[in-house]
Amino acid sequence: MLRAVSGRARPVGTITRGTTNPNRLRRCDRWLAGPQAWRLRRSPTRPIVVDLGYGSSPVTAVELHGRMRRVRHDVHVVGLEIDPDRVAVAKPLERDGLAFRRGGFEIPLRDGARPTVVRAFNVLRQYGEAEVPAAWARVQERLAPGGLLVDGTCDEIGRRATWVAVDATGPVSLTLSLRLGGLARPSDVAERLPKALIHRNVAGERIHAFLAELDEAWARSAPHSSWGARQRFLASAADVGERWPLLDGPARWRLGEITVAWEAVAPRH
């Protein structure tokens, strides 16, 4: 159950461990500035992008601001944290288009504004699986038309990342993003699956089948290693795409990124 913490503002949620590193979320930011950039460009008003639960350092919100400004110069990025001390540390970094506030899943923005994008990375990983739908629903209620919640997880330096894209109708897709250099097999990303899937990587579940097929395609594509890991991953993704509903193509696969429709990997109930 999501809880409101004590205090006058009563943010919804609990304080995260707060671990963060510079450039940790670059893979997701690259996706937001790439195939999802249309959401910012089509906003009829100044788009708001929220970095929900940015952690003990505001660096990810600062980086997000810089990257989203390349998509639309008037974007407004808001870093939200439940811990007031973390907000106080971040406040001196505020500038035009970048602000920090205390808040949680209720997404408290001034004048009832609604965000175009909410990026919540390594936040729900610290909650129970049963709490995920309620957290998603809280944020969905606050999204602007055409808005998106990105619920993701990554390793400490951003070499492996996964995220679920959730719009007003529900979860839409799952993206895996991998550093290809030194990759043993694609399923190594399994330990970084979002909370909605991490406990579902077992026989009989769709996500387990998807990762297994990706590994098999990776093995079959071994001859492409002569031209590098990128070419091997391209061949692997094309192979998997013959049987699974992938939502992207070679331009993203070249980056070690692959996106599959949510219904193909969603948990069985």
Rank of each mutant, 00 (worst) to 15 (best):
I198H: 10
S187M: 13
S43L: 07
L148A: 03
R268L: 15
V202R: 15
R119T: 04
L2W: 12
T14R: 15
D151E: 10
A264Q: 00
G256D: 10
P171R: 09
E156D: 13
P245T: 11
R101C: 02
F121E: 09
V202K: 15
F100H: 06
D188P: 03
R268W: 04
E106Q: 13
E131I: 08
L93T: 07
S236Y: 02
M68R: 08
D96W: 10
I207F: 02
L52I: 01
K91V: 11
R119F: 01
L180M: 11
G147W: 00
V78D: 07
F100S: 02
S236N: 09
H224D: 13
V78T: 08
A209T: 14
A209R: 15
Y127E: 03
V5R: 08
R254I: 04
P250D: 14
V260I: 15
A90D: 06
G53H: 04
V150Q: 02
T19R: 14
L178D: 13
A33T: 14
G249P: 02
R39Y: 07
S56N: 12
R159E: 15
T116V: 06
F233N: 09
R27E: 00
H73N: 14
D188R: 15
L197F: 09
F105R: 05
G7R: 12
W163N: 03
V49S: 02
V139C: 03
C28A: 15
T20Y: 05
L52F: 01
L176S: 06
R179T: 13
K91E: 12
F105W: 10
G112Y: 11
S6A: 15
D248G: 05
C154V: 05
L40R: 04
P44V: 14
G66K: 05
V5T: 13
V118Y: 00
A196V: 09
R243C: 13
T20P: 06
V172D: 09
V117A: 00
F100D: 06
D155P: 03
I48Y: 03
T153W: 12
A203C: 11
